[in-house]
Design a protein around this nucleic acid. Structure first.
Lengths: 200, 200
DNA sequence: TTTTATTGATTGATGAGTCAATCAAAAATA
DNA sequence: TATTTTTGATTGACTCATCAATCAATAAAA
């Protein structure tokens, strides 16, 4: 079996397996054995390539974040106007793959881990900042700068909040409704500024 | 030392210690030994009174939820008008004790645990439902029923989202700003309905 | 004396990480 | 081409630490 060049293949298999297992069990307290089994290799090999469980988990988060970033970049490339860009970001946030119960469970586990691991925290901060600055950039074309900051903050919070509420699976809100709610928030605030501006 | 009637004292001490330790470490993966040490008793005694770690954790969540409910009831008793009641609920959600880093970390850990423990999930669902129905009740006095449901959903999501973003401690938002953002959301949507209603 | 409170010592399970050994492909050499 | 050497891939078996849970023993009320 030992054909040369297996490293990238195994690394990817292990990272993918880790995400599956974490999503499935809803916690980072999963065993290397289980991840390795899902990836079809021995636990020892997982250690061989990643050195430690911590490192494998970090790579796993990185992978999830990279996917989200790529999707965002792709979605933004397709549209030009600021308002359309806002909609594109909202759509990506709630796209099916991100909004699946397993993925949400994994996100939650990562946020929880960020309380302990400085490196995990850093990664999630990068995500939060990116979302915020993308939103702000588009909003600044539509309203005064300080309003843009405020609305971005609110929209980002609403997105994250819809995720966490989704995780409880009681009265699930659904992709369309989540998008509508967030769009509505943005629209409502932009409109209000305009009518105020006109009225004043 | 064995004086009779220690049970309630020890139970409370253990539950309080559990919340402290969980908040501090940001995870439910804390040891009974650590909790017991913080409570000033032996690990064996914790088992004696709670039977298992799981049970102690459940009691701990219950305690946190009870506290929040009591605060809400108290706050609502003080005000009468629907709009004031909305503000009171928002204020309670972000009150200092709830919004402290340790408490937020504990909430996050509980949400994560809800992915595994049906009982924990049930408790959190109760919290979510209560918040939602309180919000809806007041909103229905201010706008049409279906709008009330939508706005309540959005406000609840925003509250939860502000919590989760606070947990990352990057660009912390602050109590006042969080309250303002949520108030703003509610106000903006109610106002818009009124102006639309007038315009149509 | 019976009951309640309390603990030290112990057990059993689990799981991360290590390591020496194996196996087969590739590269070097004859 | 045939043979030897090297190297990457892979694992089974093991160690070590941690921790929940148990239990027998003790001490002080009632």
């Amino acid at each position: 079996m030992p054909k040369v060049g297996m490293e990238p293949v195994r690394r990817k298999a292990l990272v993918d397996a880790a995400l599956r297992v974490i999503g499935d069990q809803g916690t980072l307290a999963v065993t290397m054995s289980e991840i390795a089994r899902q990836a079809g290799v021995s636990p020892a090999l997982a250690h061989h390539y990643f050195g430690s469980k911590e490192q494998l988990l970090i790579e796993t988060i990185r992978s999830l974040l990279r996917q989200l970033r790529d999707d965002t970049v792709t979605a933004l490339r397709a549209v030009a106007s600021p308002r359309e860009r806002l909609s594109a970001m909202i759509r990506v946030s709630f796209q099916a793959s991100q909004f699946a119960p397993d993925t949400i469970a994994a996100w939650l586990a990562f946020y929880s881990e960020a309380q302990r691991s400085e490196e995990v925290r850093r990664l999630l901060v990068v995500y939060a900042r990116r979302l915020r600055s993308n939103l702000v950039a588009s909003l600044k074309a539509l309203c005064p700068d300080d309003d843009a900051e405020r609305i971005a903050e609110g929209a980002a919070a609403m997105i994250d909040g819809l995720y966490i509420r989704q995780s409880l699976r009681s009265a699930p809100i659904g992709i369309e409704a989540s998008i509508a709610l967030t769009e509505d928030y943005v629209t409502s605030h932009i409109d209000r500024l305009h009518s105020q501006g006109t009225a004043a």
